[in-house]
């Protein structure tokens, strides 16, 4: 009985800890729920330049904290989400935003899967082509003739 309670408590501690995450330390005040939501969306879409593949909301790196504060400040100044993304991109490049821009080099990210699927369907279609209908009666007659020729 006691053991079960203990295990329950440990599980509870693990669950509550993981749900708080790194941003739990920040103590930012928002005027309304919408502002908070913009902040949370932005920090989850901006990538930490120091870490390998972590957004700035999840990262506890020094740079991620600084960037979270900058996002907060810019939003408080009345800047839009696009402004904040542009601000970060001007400093840390396209790398900093999880959605790649559409350029000649990146268009293949969207085109290649479509082309690949298209090529697959094309091959399938080519293979499915039904065999040309043959006149069986005529072929039988031809075979018959050959057999007769063979006979002395």
């Amino acid at each position: 009985m006691k053991l079960g309670l203990l295990i329950g408590l440990v599980l509870l501690a693990i669950v509550s800890k993981s749900s708080v995450g790194a941003t739990g330390q920040d103590n930012y005040q928002f005027a309304n729920a919408q502002q908070r939501e913009t902040f949370q969306t932005l920090t989850s879409q901006l990538r930490c330049p120091m870490c390998q593949n972590q957004n700035i909301a999840d990262s506890d790196a020094m740079i991620a904290r600084d960037m979270r504060r900058k996002v907060y400040q810019l939003l408080q100044d009345g800047q839009s989400a696009e402004d904040v993304i542009a601000y970060m991109k001007a400093r840390y490049g396209d790398f900093v935003y999880y959605e790649p821009p559409l350029t000649v080099a990146t268009i293949w990210l969207w085109l290649l899967p479509v082309l690949f699927a298209g090529a697959g369907f094309w091959v399938l279609y080519r293979r499915r082509k039904p065999a040309p209908v043959e006149d069986m009666a005529q072929r039988l007659a031809q075979a018959e003739k050959l057999l007769k020729q063979d006979k002395p």
């Binding site: 330049p49 120091m50 790196a61 600084d66 840390y92």
Partner: peptide, 12 residues
């Protein structure tokens, strides 16, 4: 406030 570091694109 590390504004200059941000402006320079410093990561660490």
């Amino acid at each position: 406030y590390r504004d200059m570091s941000l402006d320079l694109g410093v990561t660490g």
